[in-house]
Design a protein around this nucleic acid. Sequence first.
DNA 1: TGAATTTCTGCAAAAAAACGCAGAAAACAA
DNA 2: TTGTTTTCTGCGTTTTTTTGCAGAAATTCA
Lengths: 248, 248
Amino acid sequence: MLKEERLAYILHQVNLHNKVLSSHLSEQIQVSEDTIRRDLAELAQEGKIIKVHGGALSNSFHQGIASQDVYAVEDKKTIALKAVQLIHDGMFVLTTGGTTIAELARVLPRDLQATFITVSLPAAFEYANHPNIEVIVIGDKLSKGSKITVGGEAISKIKMIKADLCFLGNNAIDAEDGLTDNDWDVVQVKRAMISTAKKVVVLSISEKIDTSEQLKICDAEEIDVLITELPPDSKKLQPYKKKGIQIL
Amino acid sequence: MLKEERLAYILHQVNLHNKVLSSHLSEQIQVSEDTIRRDLAELAQEGKIIKVHGGALSNSFHQGIASQDVYAVEDKKTIALKAVQLIHDGMFVLTTGGTTIAELARVLPRDLQATFITVSLPAAFEYANHPNIEVIVIGDKLSKGSKITVGGEAISKIKMIKADLCFLGNNAIDAEDGLTDNDWDVVQVKRAMISTAKKVVVLSISEKIDTSEQLKICDAEEIDVLITELPPDSKKLQPYKKKGIQIL
DNA sequence: TGAATTTCTGCAAAAAAACGCAGAAAACAA
DNA sequence: TTGTTTTCTGCGTTTTTTTGCAGAAATTCA
């Protein structure tokens, strides 16, 4: 097994189980514990995990009292890990709010250099924890429930940004009805984001798949990528693939 | 179970129940009481809990040691209660961030109907708790340390607002040197606020009175009201009264 | 005061980490 | 291809960390 393969495997295990034991990994991969330790040290250096005596912990583990309470954290973490692969150095990324987006913020690699633009105050807080990420807050009237800024000012600001990526969380999505939501202001913001981003990525736990809300955001065809916690070849996702959406 | 995991678990338990027993933890985690004691000692060393005979207490709940901070909170509450008298229904209020401003947000009467405009994300969160207050967030690049938005965009937005009141927190103030600060971006924001507000109110604990920082915000004469926790006729405040500043 | 409980102290065993080194593997250049 | 250089990996040794234990000291509570 190649070193890079091994590192990827270890990182995957850490993110999946929140902890790994050096001894356990050594046995699984059939390399010495020294090698495992060196690998863990390397990943810790890059800020991707937290190395501790006896093994390593996921870095969302420590800061995450909040993430423990969130519903379906494991699923959301799986989604976040898939989503993070789409982000590259130098990109401009638009995001909404929501717990899935918060999870995404937590799994961003330490060394990623990118600009994140958001209307969500909680998301902005999460992004601000990362040393190399520039955070732009879109200002306007604050919607008290969702803690996002909404209004014409925000919409026009969003439209002025040519973003590489746009992550939309917390949706109802259906192959026929497209993307829908139940908050008027949120719908406006999401529409603006979709109209200005090169690539539209929807993050959704499988529960929200094949569900609809009252207000339409856009057709399924306008979505470029759909990420769920399910494997891409899952039966439930095939109608979306037929619509030309890339499934991760 | 890894040591770090155990520490996280203990900390979680302490924060959850406000107290833990060594004996109880020992049984729960299945390690010796000695180990638990050493863990508690370590967490106490880092200031995360308060170790007592038989177990440990949460330090947020039982503020035994940080009595200086407690006094400061009391002072800030005193200041906030004076400041709140200046706010009336229908007003547009500009505010910076900081703990004094956070305290102001907490003591706002529930029936007050006003619009608060801020560059501070933590302040926006506080204001959002109030049912009748409209919150406007000024957007721009997020300054990671202070969690306020800074930059030309924010400045020009601020200048477009004709605010009735402007609350500036967390300053150094001196009768001769005027209002000063040590963060370039913060200074720009405060200057913009002063220039656009009808009435400029400085909130400052007495510790900061007669102190100066490197960067000048404005002259003492430009300040309309100064609020401290001291009584208005306090000797320390007389130089400011001479400059034409109203003391509360 | 006195008994029960908890803490402290030093100690020892086990586990893990760090270190240096040598051979193996991979990457690179000619 | 072949030879050189660099990186990677495993092993033995040393050092550090962690943990439990026993007995003395301190604390609590009736």
